[in-house]
Design a protein around this nucleic acid. Structure first.
Length: 235
DNA sequence: AACCAGGACGTGA
DNA sequence: TCACGTCATGGT
């Protein structure tokens, strides 16, 4: 590429090209009144509003279930949970791990992920959503990272989309895209890439939330196993 | 019919 | 620290 982009420029270009993505996608809630957003697509003003707890829970479960997994398989798993009456905090506290595993089968790695979800629910029982506001983001992040099964990307998704914290999410696509643009070196460590974004961007939840979503959308089109885009808008 | 998706963990060097 | 094996369904 001839142009040398800055991190801010890439966001601008992607947003112009794809438009807002409306992340995190909520698939189990339909009302859209008292809640942060209605199910499905993007709605202006969806950002920075607090979620209700059931939507927060859905985001957290989705973040765990989508680890190295196609999102469609995650949606199937989430719908299974709901239709079998397991989609509530109280139910997830008491459900047997192997029962949970059976219900999230479609998301793959279902035995591991069932354990990961139970670990997270156990944490949530000690640290309810209602208490989260009193915690500083860096502390909260460290605490979440202690949970076995929640690595940096999953934790940052939870922080950014469920807790509306300024915590940029780095994923494989982010590394590939920014590497190709020569903005970062290949094999740059997660925390360093994250820091690059956070020190370059204004503190704006819309930007944080949309930027990651746009990188995933762009990554799927041009940096996946089977790219389906024509004419990379960043080149 | 392989190949892999919005990762994370355990192990051995 | 780091490279590598493991976990697994569903779509292409």
């Amino acid at each position: 590429m001839s142009i040398h982009y800055r991190i801010e420029d890439v966001f601008q270009r992607l947003m112009e090209h794809y438009g807002p993505q409306g992340w995190w996608p909520i698939v189990l809630t339909e009302d859209g009144k008292s809640t942060r957003r209605s199910a499905g697509g993007y709605h202006a003003g969806d950002y920075t509003y607090p979620h209700n707890d059931i939507q927060r829970l859905e985001i957290c479960l989705g973040a765990i279930l989508t680890q190295n997994t196609n999102w469609n398989n995650v949606v199937t798993a989430l719908k299974n949970l709901k239709s079998s009456g397991s989609f509530s905090f109280a139910k997830l506290v008491t459900i047997e791990e192997n029962d949970l595993a059976r219900q999230i089968k479609s998301a793959g790695y279902y035995n591991q992920k069932a354990g990961y979800i139970k670990n997270f629910i156990r944490y949530l029982k000690q640290n309810p959503f209602s208490h989260e506001k009193h915690q500083e983001t860096s502390i909260l992040r460290k605490n979440l990272l202690q949970i076995r099964g929640l690595g940096p990307e999953t934790v940052d998704c939870i922080l950014l989309y469920a807790f509306n914290r300024y915590s940029f999410v780095v994923d494989a696509y982010t590394q590939r895209i920014l590497g190709k643009l020569r903005i970062i070196e290949n094999n740059t460590k997660y925390e360093f890439v994250k820091e690059r974004f956070e020190s370059s961007l204004p503190k704006d939840l819309f930007i944080y939330q949309e930027y990651h979503a746009l990188l995933v959308e762009h990554g799927k089109r041009y940096y996946s196993r089977k790219p389906y885009g024509e004419g990379d808008p960043l080149f």
